[in-house]
Design a protein around this nucleic acid. Structure first.
Length: 360
DNA sequence: AAAAACACCAACCGCCTTTGT
DNA sequence: CACAAAGGCGGTTGGTGTTTT
């Protein structure tokens, strides 16, 4: 059985608002305010509209100081940065952009910004692939030269490396078992820059908000911008996240009692195809968040405790439409794993089967 | 010139949360 | 505490204008 409708659908007008209706609504609210009851409002002023529809019309169009269109570069950046950190919480994002409505921002993101970023991202990925390919060739050439001077015993190992595309196991190294190498510091540095941006936008990241940090995590935080990071531990938390393969999501850190707040969930959900564009991160720095499409909603539910069924779960699942979801180990791609094997042939790289949450 | 495809955005829908009783 | 009503939010739809074929 469904929920009772908020109004009599048969007797309300739907579709675009006429200038007369706009004028009526605006005049009334200008004089009397909304009266705290949107449902009753249309009857008071003789509008055959649903109360919710009136509210939406007012908030998205008639309200004073509303801006439409013409998003600036700075606004683009703010939207992107916040999207990275908190996902599609349009109302929160809109709160950071005076005069913009959540609906406007949502539409702008879905119709323009997303495509704009996708386009740039693809171009950068192509560029990067070209660069890596060229590096690889050089490296192979060097290895080949070394090989010519090596003892016969070395032949097998090295030849298998040369044929990495065919012979290396199709498994992925897990950063958690290998030392965090190049990129990790930069990653953390970029987290710093994101924090700075959020501070600029009104978030708090000072040392004296440890309590709010804990509270936020334990009360299903609604406004992640307010999350604070105890400065001496935020980097460690970040490293923990990298090391844990995402399993620290909502998991209590035994030594501190902290929980990872939702702001990190933003990163786990992070659509990686935008990574290079957002908050100045480049793709390599975000490799730790790469993810295979097979980790879907189930894994999220598992990570979240498996019983939430909350909007965040739904939302995260929808992100999957655009990109891979980031809920498992920070994995290197096969290609990158092979790259590491080639670059560091004498270093142990831990290969491990991908971890599936809730799928096995 | 016409049809098809695409882009945009206002408005709707349904779900979850908050508030009042 | 339980329930209902209203508010709020995010995803989606559908109409309209624009561009491409």
């Amino acid at each position: 059985m469904g929920r009772a409708p908020c109004c009599d659908k048969a007797n309300v007008k739907r579709g675009p608002w006429s200038p007369e209706e706009d004028a009526k609504l605006k005049a009334y609210i200008d004089h009397h305010g909304t009266g705290g009851n949107w449902i009753a409002l249309p009857q008071k002023i003789g509008l055959k509209r649903c109360g919710k529809s009136c509210r939406l019309r007012w908030l998205n169009y008639l309200r004073p100081n509303i801006k439409h269109g013409g998003f600036t570069e700075e606004e683009d950046n703010i939207i992107c940065s916040l999207y990275v950190s908190i996902g599609s919480r349009w109302s929160i994002i809109a709160a950071q952009l005076p005069g913009r409505t959540d609906n406007d921002i949502k539409n702008y993101w879905n119709t323009k910004l997303k495509k704009k970023l996708l386009g740039k991202q693809r171009k950068e990925q192509q560029d990067q692939a070209r660069r890596v390919s060229s590096q690889l060739k050089q490296e192979m050439k060097r290895e080949s030269e070394n090989f010519m001077m090596m003892e016969p015993a070395g032949v097998m190992n090295h030849s298998s490396l040369y044929n990495w595309s065919a012979e290396l196991p199709v498994a992925v190294p897990v950063l958690g078992t290998a030392p965090i190498q190049q990129g990790s510091h930069d990653l953390i540095k970029d987290q710093e820059s994101l924090k700075n941006l959020l501070v600029k936008l009104g978030g708090r990241f000072s040392d004296d908000h440890i309590q709010s940090y804990t509270n936020a995590a334990s009360t299903n935080l609604q406004y992640p911008c307010d999350i604070s990071f105890p400065q001496d531990q935020d980097h460690q938390l970040y490293v923990n996240l990298l090391n844990s393969g995402g399993e620290v999501v909502n998991a209590t850190n035994n030594s501190t009692g902290y929980q990872l707040p939702n702001i990190y969930q933003g990163f786990e959900n992070f659509p990686n195809e935008y990574s290079s564009e957002l908050v100045g991160m480049n793709p390599q720095e975000l490799n730790g968040f790469e993810f295979d499409g097979c980790y879907g909603m189930e894994s999220i539910e598992m990570v979240n405790g498996g019983s939430t069924g909350t909007s965040s779960t739904t939302e995260s699942a929808n992100w999957g439409e655009m990109s891979s979801l980031v809920y498992s180990s920070p994995l290197l791609s096969d290609y990158e794993a092979n790259q590491q094997a080639i670059m560091h042939p004498h270093q142990d790289i831990a290969f491990e089967e991908p971890r599936f949450f809730g799928l096995q």
